[in-house]
Design a protein around this nucleic acid. Structure first.
Length: 542
DNA sequence: GGTCAAGGCCAA
DNA sequence: TTGGCCTTGACC
């Protein structure tokens, strides 16, 4: 093992801050880089099945000095940041490796790469003054497989050598640099700027779109092609094996509990409202009692092991999508597709359906992405674009559609207060991808059902779904707003290069596909959602 | 045998 | 109840 490899594999948490309270990180604990005190707090809470009640509004500030004040909000923040109750052992067995070992290793390697690449030729694109307690960049970077960037960045950086600044001239250029939209823009196809300021590689956009956490480009910086740190051992990816055995419909067959976790069951899913959807594993009272019914879609299985978690991430849809353009794999794909006629026509139809989905959903995914980042506090309130103007983050999120900026901000606040976490974010993304308006496609309808069922295993609130639908309608309206510019603001429209730009084609197509907001469903008010509708599933020993 | 993320212990 | 330190044990 080389020195560099040793550096990659050896933990170095010096200077790292706990994403929950900001104290010094002592290592990976229950899926997250945290301090010793949050580790102990989380362990006690889960082991002793503690139920906390916030005396305020469930949005208490948590930092090193006041973390003892509100255990309810502290625990909620632990969960939101990504600590995993499943990692607390039901049998209390000491020692041994935990179930996320390979995650930790991979995450460490990613972090080392980021740290290594932070040094050369980067300049701040926007210097944002922030205090430790006012960080709109919450340190979700500590979370294994999370989809955010770096906590320690006081400035937001970009690689000066990569940015084609000539394309950053108007407010709409700011839109075009937002993640989803820009992935379709040929002019910016080499590098894409995330709202947080990071440039991501073009090929990552599909992974981002599909919500694969381990492949999320926000986990990675863009590296010069010539620069490569030694990777942690990569498992060879067998396309055929993954497609056949880990297809979307077969996830539930993969995630089988192991003995360590077999005794852990989600005992209570307390809610004052009905479950999100009727689940076959739910009782009439809404309590989920069947731990063997694992998530078919989301990494929410009640008994994840290192092996099964690895399966999920290594066999991700993103990996499958990456292999699709490879002609040498195409025959295997065709023969491996269950129930799919193995001929070129079937494949063409499949691709056509995928394009339909992407064209319909990209704006929703874009808004969902920014919503989650806002919930985590990762985004500054405004962005300065190249011409010196400040635009609000809502302006960027809604593609310039000012109508619902305030509504979006309120929805974001509500989600934050409801404890919106990465699982909900993941569900939102899948629901966005499998757009309701495409439910005439059988696979979409089926996929939506699986997502909803998986989600219902960890959430018992219709409130989240209501807000998602609001976001989706806002996305539709924003696309139509963009499209309307060709008649209302021809000057700006022309700057978007409408005759040759691929993004214009996407806007045009999606504007024609997304259903108009009906008068009866026009978004005028944020729905009233009570915070008490959310209670996390608590894993308990049976 | 070293590593490190689990659980346990115990003073504050 | 908290949080710092210790012990344990699977994995490398």
């Amino acid at each position: 093992m080389s020195d560099v490899e040793r550096m990659v594999l050896r933990p170095n948490h010096e200077g790292e801050m706990c994403p929950v309270c900001g104290d010094r990180v002592s290592g990976y604990h229950y899926g997250l880089l945290t301090c010793e005190s949050c580790k102990g707090f989380f362990k006690r809470t889960v082991q002793n099945k503690k139920q906390y009640q916030c005396s305020a509004e469930s949005n208490c500030h948590v930092d090193r000095t006041c973390r003892k004040r509100c255990p309810s909000c502290r625990f909620q923040k632990c969960l939101t940041m990504g600590m995993k109750m499943e990692a607390v052992r039901a049998d209390r067995m000491r020692g041994g490796r935990n179930k996320f070992g390979s995650f930790y290793k991979r995450d460490r390697a990613h972090r080392m790469q980021r740290n290594a690449m932070r040094v050369p030729t980067v300049i701040p694109v926007q210097t944002v003054t922030q205090t430790p307690t006012q960080s709109y960049y919450q340190p979700a970077d500590h979370q294994v497989s999370s989809s955010t960037t770096d906590q320690n960045s006081q400035n937001i950086y970009f690689d000066q050598t990569k940015v084609k600044t000539e394309f950053v001239k108007t407010e709409y250029d700011a839109h075009l640099q937002s993640p989803t939209l820009s992935s379709t823009n040929q002019q910016l196809s080499d590098f894409i700027m995330r709202p947080t300021g990071y440039l991501i590689d073009h090929q990552d956009s599909i992974a981002a779109l599909l919500g694969n956490a381990s492949e999320d480009p926000l986990l990675r910086h863009t590296f010069p092609a010539s620069y490569q740190l030694p990777e942690v051992k990569q498992e060879p990816f067998d396309y055929n094996e993954h497609l056949v055995h880990h297809s979307f419909q077969d996830y539930h067959n993969i995630y089988q509990p192991t003995t360590n976790y077999a005794t852990m069951m989600p005992m209570t899913a307390v809610s004052t409202t009905s479950p999100l959807v009727t689940s076959t594993s739910s009782t009439a009272s809404g309590n989920i009692t069947d731990a063997s019914s694992n998530s078919p879609v989301l990494p929410l299985c009640p008994a994840p092991t290192e092996k099964t978690v690895d399966h999920f991430y290594n066999s991700s849809m993103a990996e499958l999508c990456k292999t699709l353009p490879d002609e040498t794999q195409l025959p295997r794909f065709m023969s491996a597709s269950k129930g799919t006629k193995s001929d070129g026509h079937s494949f063409a139809v499949l691709m056509d359906d995928q394009m339909n989905l992407l064209q319909t959903c990209w704006a929703t995914v874009h808004i969902v992405d920014l919503t989650y980042a806002m919930v985590l506090g990762n985004l500054p309130p405004t962005y300065k674009i190249a011409n010196g103007e400040d635009v609000s983050v809502g302006f960027v999120a809604l593609l310039g559609n000012q109508t619902y900026v305030n509504t979006w901000a309120e929805l974001t606040n509500q989600l934050r207060n409801m404890g919106f976490n990465k699982f909900d974010y993941c569900a939102f993304r899948f629901l966005a991808l499998f757009d309701q308006s495409m439910e005439h496609l059988q696979v979409v309808s089926s996929a939506r059902s699986q997502v909803l069922q998986a989600w219902a295993e960890v959430r018992c609130s219709t409130g989240f779904l209501e807000i998602f639908e609001q976001l989706r309608r806002i996305a539709y309206d924003s696309i139509r707003y963009l499209w309307s510019l060709n008649s209302t603001c021809p000057r700006i429209w022309q700057q978007l290069n409408p005759d040759s730009s691929l993004v214009m084609e996407m806007i045009k197509t999606s504007a024609s596909k997304t259903p108009a907001i009906q008068p009866t469903t026009t978004i005028t008010q944020v729905p009233t959602i009570h915070q008490t509708t959310y209670t996390p599933v608590v894993y308990m020993a049976s």
